[in-house]
Amino acid sequence: MSVPARYDRVKQVCAFVVDAAESAGLDETAVFHCQIAVDEACTNIIEHGYRGEDKGQIEAECRTEPGMATITIIDWAPPFDVTQVPDPSLDRPIEDAAIGGLGVFFMRKMMNEVTYHHKDGANRLVMVKRKTG
């Protein structure tokens, strides 16, 4: 699926991914993790990649097999490898709680694999979620 890069369209991408994750037989928690990861990925693309709404498209692809969903989020913003963003420092006082980098941190914590490739002008973020237990 493909949507214009706008915050009000992110939930549409989330719904698409939730359907795929459910069809792969992932449990409720794993489906929620996929939703958060995709939400944060799309939000980052709009905010930091395209630097604003309506500057391009976001495409999502899902491949599923029993107990596993592979989600690919594609955009055409300037190359940016989110997997290189350092984790935020979480044991800081409230004055320093900037929340920057938290989206990427959530993606890493909630998915089993997060990889990035840049090819033919497109950023491709591939996230894998496997069923637990």
């Binding site: 939703q35 958060i36 939400d39 944060e40 939000t43 409230i94 004055e95 709680a97 929340i99 938290l102 989206g103 959530f106």
Partner: peptide, 19 residues
């Protein structure tokens, strides 16, 4: 029903302001 880091950011920003 659902909260992403954007919601957390709104809460932290308000917490800083009221503190």
């Amino acid at each position: 029903e659902y909260m992403s880091s954007a919601g957390l950011r709104a809460m932290v920003s308000t917490l800083k302001a009221v503190k």
